[in-house]
Structure formats: C-alpha cells, structure tokens
Design a protein around this nucleic acid. Structure first.
Lengths: 140, 140
DNA sequence: AAGATTATATCGTTATTTACGATGTATTAT
DNA sequence: ATAATACATCGTAAATAACGATATAATCTT
C-alpha cells in the first residue's frame, strides 16, 4: 500500500518531466502558486493569497500588483464589501498557468494515439476517479 | 480524442493543486527544473543545464554554484574527461525536489484507503502505462 | 609540441524580485 | 464616533538572475 503510493509518485514525476511544456519564461514558484490558487478557488483576495503562500499581507499585495502589471491577474471589488478585492486570471494568466502546470497536449495526444481502446479508457477513468477524490481532501 | 486530453489535463492540475505538499520554501522554477533534470538524466553537466533551461553557460554555472552552496547539488568530475562536471542531487536536493513536485504521500494514502481494490488497480495500472509511455517521448 | 577546442569558473555590472515594517486609506462594523 | 478590516504604498535590504568578457584547465588536432 505504502509502496503503491511511492511507485505512483515515481510515475507522476516521470510523466511531468517528460510531458511538460518547455517553459521558457522566467517565473517563480510563488507566482505559479498564486495563479493556481486564484484559478481553483472562488473569490480569492489579497489576504487569502498571503495566507496561502505564507507571506505578510503587504508582500502579497505587491505580488498581486506585479502580476497585474504583467497582465496575469485582473482585479475587481466585491459587491457586498467594497474593501475586498476579487482576483481572477486574465487570458494570459490562464495561458501561463497552463503552460507551467499542464501536460503538453501534443505529446499527450501522441501517446493516446498509441494506446488501444482499453488502455485509453483505463487511463481516462483513473484520472477521473483521482481528480474527484483529490477535491474531497482538505484544500491546501 | 482531443477532448479526452483536455479533460485529463483538467484532472491533472486538480490533482496537483489538492494533493501537493505545502511548499513553504521560496524556490524558483529554474532551480526546480535543474533538480528535475539532474535527477532524471544521467551525467548532467553545466552545459547540459544551460541548454535545458535555455540560459548562457555562465548563468548555468552560477545556478549550479548557488545550488551547491545551498547543499542541493554535489559536484564531481568525469573520470574519462576531467573537464566535465557531473552533478548529482544531495539528500536535501532530493527532498526539496520531492516536496516540490510529488504528491503528498499522506493524502495519497488517505485516498487509496478509500478506494476499492478494483479502483486501486485501475489507477496503479494507468500510471504504470502512462509513466512508461512518457519516457518514450522525446526528452524535453 | 603548439594551437585550437571544450567545459567550466569568475568578475563586473545591471535589473528585477522578494520580503518586511511602518504607515496611510477607504470601507464596514459596533 | 471609534474600532476593525482589507488593502495599498513607501522605504529599505538582501538575494537572484542574467549577460558579456575574460580566465583556466583538460583534451583534441595536426
């Protein structure tokens, strides 16, 4: 059981290493993590980011500012509370996040073409199950 | 088919978002990528890194220097050619890479416990297949 | 053996990033 | 009216990242 998990992680990192996009942009982990958080959680504000990446509020604010300057994020205010900022990804933000966390669709397609129907179904279903179950874990 | 791939990427990012370790260290993408490359490829030297992350040779050399200072990498020289540096990960390097690219074993274990035997086998096999096939793609 | 090539290292420099404490400014709550 | 909340900005400090130029040592070529 323990072992299954370790092997799976082995495959997980192999898959990412071989199938990720060539990420040529110079981007930090913090920025990626902010993009992820904004994409996956609703109504993320500056303080949520500070908590999530574990920095002070002003630092988070500056991250957000820089990311808006780079057109990765858009900012609006909550209707119910005008103090609160609501962030969302710009198209560019989506794209940068995609290129830095997803698998290369071309390569994936290539692999899928080499699989038989049974294997394809197997993989599709495995990811469906794991994707759903992961959401039920406590959010990070 | 195209659609299968897109859905899979959706699950891929969901899984990572929900199951990654809380990475508290401030680390750049470049450093992670260097760690990955050194771990997954044999006999990586300074120039290999420069090519891989697309920077000039001196920049790569300085990355390596900083990473050695931080005890993420170890350096030795090739026996057959004393000019060539051979890099490998220190234990700390392995650990940092693990915490920044793998899935949280505890969370994975928790999920595995909630799966029935059939689902477990499904997932295990899916990752085995995908892990193997990904290695046959052209290396990045 | 001299010169060229290769692999890496170092230096000087520049720009950007990252983070924090302190302080300021709206907006909402009491 | 005052306090609390959510965010923004300023000043500052340290680290990072990148490059061109130059240096060094090992290996290859002729």
């Amino acid at each position: 059981m323990e072992n299954e998990v370790k092997k799976m992680n082995q495959h997980w990192t192999d898959i990412y290493y071989h199938l990720h996009y060539p990420h040529d942009e110079k981007i930090t982990h913090q920025v990626i993590r902010i993009l992820q958080h904004v994409q996956k959680q609703p109504n993320v504000g500056v303080n949520d980011i500070a908590d999530y990446i574990n920095v002070s509020q002003n630092t988070a604010s500056e991250h957000v500012k820089r990311m808006i300057d780079k057109a990765l994020l858009k900012k609006s205010r909550s209707q119910s509370d005008e103090r609160k900022v609501i962030l969302c990804l710009t198209e560019k933000g989506e794209e940068v996040l995609f290129r830095n966390t997803s698998l290369d669709e071309e390569k994936l397609n290539h692999i899928f073409k080499s699989l038989n129907t049974e294997e394809k179904e197997l993989i599709t279903e495995a990811f469906e199950i794991l994707g759903e179950r992961s959401k039920q874990c406590l959010s990070p």
